[in-house]
Design a protein around this nucleic acid. Structure first.
Length: 212
DNA sequence: CTACCGATCCCCT
DNA sequence: GGGGATCGGTAGA
């Protein structure tokens, strides 16, 4: 699982809906395990929400949180054993305009209804640096139009509209840094401090304050 | 700079 | 009915 997380860094995430293509280089991920991992959605065994976590390697596990965000995971364990890698950030490579549109579309659908909110959101997105468009799991979900219907998709199928590609052979294996996972304090100190977050040091697209 | 707060909805110790 | 693998804005030191 940890090895799979490291292997994902540098790989490409691709959204190909037939009209536009969006791709990004994965620069930040987190590993989540099964029942023993108190930070994992699988901590209480299989449920309707986390069923895909128990699927075979290579499927997408998509979940919604806080009523407005969808997050993408790559299932990485053998069938029956829950494990998933949360994709927290990518560096946009192709389809930057489509990512801005997707961010705007999702933001308008969910943000509080102030009178001038749409104009302000559009202005903010227009100014936003490319590296921030898919920085953080919620932002990535919006930029790549991740939907609940993507749950269970085969990310290793070259014909899939949402898929992964290996890091290009010509591209060197990236350096990898690690540290505690984000936002899992509820799991208790032991699991919250486990160094299961991995990132490519120096990437401008890292989540939180690191990339700013 | 840090700290808190609200938004918003599906699923569940 | 509670709460969350988040985000961006605001208030205050």
């Amino acid at each position: 699982m940890v090895a799979a997380a490291r292997e994902l860094l540098g790989a490409r995430l691709i959204r190909d809906d037939g009209l536009s293509v969006r791709t990004g280089r994965i620069v930040e991920v987190e590993a989540y395990g099964g029942r023993e991992d108190l930070a994992s959605h699988a901590r209480s065994g299989p449920t309707a929400r986390n069923a895909t976590m128990f699927a075979a390697s290579g499927e997408a596990y998509v979940y919604g949180v806080y009523g407005m965000h969808t997050c993408l995971n790559v299932v990485c364990g053998p069938a029956g054993r829950a494990s998933a890698i949360l994709v927290r950030a990518v560096e946009p490579l192709v389809g930057v305009a489509a990512m801005r549109e997707a961010r705007l579309a999702r933001g308008l659908a969910t943000r509080r209804s102030e009178r001038d909110a749409p104009a302000r959101a559009a202005a903010r997105l227009g100014q936003m640096p490319v590296a921030r468009l898919a920085s953080g799991p919620g932002n990535l979900g919006a930029a790549f139009s991740i939907k609940r219907e993507d749950d269970g998709r085969d990310l290793l199928d070259p014909a899939s509209p949402l898929r992964l590609e290996a890091r290009p052979a010509a591209e060197p294996r990236p350096d990898v840094a690690s540290g505690p996972r984000i936002g899992v304090g509820f799991a208790g100190a032991a699991w919250a401090s486990a160094p299961w977050r991995f990132w490519i040091p120096g990437s401008p697209a890292l989540s939180g304050r690191r990339g700013r």
